[in-house]
């Protein structure tokens, strides 16, 4: 009975939600995203997995991170195709309309275009270096 009353109150809201309130991220999704972003120094939200990217932009981004020598132990990838809430939520959280999305030390870096431009200019390897996220160079033999 309670459930039904609750439902009907949902159908006829006493007040109109503003568009902003409707679009507001649920606290649950938000904290799940925050947890994901803090799970590694380098975090990528992508379509598919690093081994099997499901989109050319995600593939290109993964390739760049690989070429720059990101340490797999300092990297986490989240497949937005596995989780519709994450897929929509991350766009709102980052205020960024497309996937993939790269975070370094919890800071939003950008999408594929930015990652590509920053890798060409050398900015990205500088950023990753300063985040201590690259595979350590092998020590020279003496």
């Amino acid at each position: 009975m309670f459930a039904r009353a609750f439902q009907s109150s949902l159908r006829t809201p006493k007040f109109r939600l503003t568009p902003l309130a409707v679009r507001l991220l649920s606290q649950e999704t938000k904290s799940a995203i925050e947890q994901a972003i803090s799970s590694a120094p380098v975090v990528l939200f992508m379509k598919g997995t690093p081994q099997a990217p499901a989109c050319g932009f995600s593939r290109a981004t993964i390739q760049i991170l690989g070429q720059l020598g990101v340490d797999p132990h300092k990297f986490a990838a989240y497949n937005v195709l596995e989780d519709p809430e994450l897929r929509q939520g991350i766009k709102e959280y980052s205020e960024w309309p497309t996937i993939p999305q790269l975070y370094v030390n919890k800071d939003f870096v950008g999408g594929c275009d930015i990652v590509m431009a920053m890798s060409q200019s050398g900015e990205l390897s500088e950023l990753l270096e300063s985040a201590d996220a690259l595979v350590p160079e092998e020590e020279e033999e003496k």
Binding site: E95, P97, T98, G110
Partner: peptide, 23 residues
């Protein structure tokens, strides 16, 4: 770069949300 892309994304919000890929 990030601010620039955000400006473009903001100006083309509707358009981008309705298409599959935008670079």
């Amino acid at each position: 770069k990030l601010m620039r892309h955000r400006m473009v994304n903001g100006a083309l919000k509707e358009e981008i949300s309705n298409i599959h890929a935008f670079t």
